[in-house]
Design a protein around this nucleic acid. Sequence first.
DNA 1: CATTACCTGCAA
DNA 2: TTGCAGGTAATG
Length: 274
Amino acid sequence: MPELPEVEHAARSLGAQVTGAQIVGLSYIDWERMIETPTAAIFADLIAGRQIIEVGRRAKWIVATLDQGWTLALHLRMSGVVTVQGPEAQPNKHTRFVLGLSDGRQIFFDDTRKFGRLRLLDAQGLALLDQAHGVEPLSEAFTPSLLAQIVSERGTRIKPLLLDQTKIAGIGNIYADEALWHAQIHPMRAASSLSADEIERLHASIIVALQQGITHGGSTLRDYRNSYGEKGNNQEHFRVYNQQGEPCPRCGSMIEKTIVAQRGTHYCPNCQTL
DNA sequence: CATTACCTGCAA
DNA sequence: TTGCAGGTAATG
């Protein structure tokens, strides 16, 4: 499910509800393998009593700053959903862990496919997480000249380059296709073949596509919900993603779906130039 | 770069 | 029954 706009909403809605709250402990876990560091037992020990200072996002990670120098980092991968529930809520078939709060509320993590990942990090671990990712595309640091530099590096096609989290953080399959449509660039274009003009357009288009996603509360194809349990609406505003067989909103040609770098890829064969 | 693996559920 | 899904890591 979640790419930058969805994780942004997940983090914001979580922060709105639990900033300042105190974690009593890990009250339920049924998939210990999702805790990457430390071990589940040590995690349970360390998380008990922590206060949540702030909730933010880095790349596709929800990052919660805790007291005593700890950071809780949660990746939703494909089907993860974090919600805040009342004291009466019970784990269901897809609930992977629950954190109890001192006021009785509970932070639930549901994840059908069990791909979600959880880490409790010290300052060094947090620094490593940060270093593992590229520029935040909605930050000031993301400029056309930086994109020009990224694009010139190697002989890869443009779509897989957009999906590379070590280059630009947070773009996934939906927003890569949407951004390339806005920029009128074919997903199979050699990245290094982009003109200065196209790089300008792509830079602006990445921001437009992500901002549009945020504006509409993220995209809910199946699982995505924010921490209030609400779906996003951006799927109603897709230009190409899942629009195969529909007319291109710009030129009217039929949108096609193909495979690029092993991912389903949607584009207009007429107005996205190869 | 491509393929496979990790998991589960759903639509074709 | 098969293939596919918003993501990523590990392996040829």
